[in-house]
Design a protein around this nucleic acid. Sequence first.
DNA 1: ATTTTATATCGCAATATTACGATTATAATA
DNA 2: TATTATAATCGTAATATTGCGATATAAAAT
Lengths: 109, 109
Amino acid sequence: MGLTKTEIFTPEQNELSTLMKAIAHPARIAILQQIISANACICGDLVEELGLAQATISQHLKELKNAGIIQGTIEGVKVCYCIEPKTWELLKSLLDSFLGSYKNPASCC
Amino acid sequence: MGLTKTEIFTPEQNELSTLMKAIAHPARIAILQQIISANACICGDLVEELGLAQATISQHLKELKNAGIIQGTIEGVKVCYCIEPKTWELLKSLLDSFLGSYKNPASCC
DNA sequence: ATTTTATATCGCAATATTACGATTATAATA
DNA sequence: TATTATAATCGTAATATTGCGATATAAAAT
C-alpha cells in the first residue's frame, strides 16, 4: 500500500490536509515566516537565511507553490515570492472552523 | 538523506510542524471530527465510521496520541479517546499567531 | 558572444508514511 | 478456566518525503 485513500474522505478533509501538509515542515514554516516578515517578498536570500542547500530550498518553494500558498514572480534573474492571499484566507477559515469546532467539554472519559 | 534537519530550526517551528503533521492526514482529520462530534468520546466505532482497517485506525490514533492531541482511557475492553484540551489550545494559539502574522499587503511582487 | 548570477530540475540515497493482514495482549463474560 | 470482544503491535509492501550534488536553464552584465 502506502497510498492515502483519498476517495473515502470529503473534499474538505482532503483540502485541509493537503494545505496543512504543505506547511507542516519546519523549513517551510521558516520560509513562510521570512516571506511574511520581509513584508513584500524575497528570493534566494532564503538560501542564506536558512542553512539549507539551494536545491532544497527550491524544492520547498515548489511545494508551497503547488499547494497554492505562495506565488512567484520572475524579476529579471531573480524570482520574487509572496503569500497568495486567497489560499491563506482559505486555510485560515478552514482551520478556524475545524479547531473551533471543539469546545472544552463538561466531562470526558 | 531523508531526514529533517530539526537542529537548524527554532523550537516553535519544530513544535508547530510536528503538531500540524500529526493532523495533516484526511483520516486523522476525520477521526478528530468524529471524536469532537461524539461530544464526549468514542472508541472502535471509528473503524466502522471510516472505511479503514482496524490496524490502520489504531495506528492513526497512536500518532495523534504521540503528538499529545488526543488522550485514551481504558474502559474495560474498550478504549475511549478524547481531545487533549491543553494541546488543542496550544495548537490554536500557535496557528493563530502564525497565520495572523500575515496582513494583506499594500503591494507585492 | 561569453561570462556571471539566480533559480529550477534531475538523479540518487536515506528515511518516513500509509495501509493492511496476521498475531498478540487484555479484560469481560460464560 | 475457556471463550469472546476489543484494541495494540508486528511484519511487510508500496509509495512519499527529505536533502543534496550535479547539471540545466535563463536573464543580465561584460
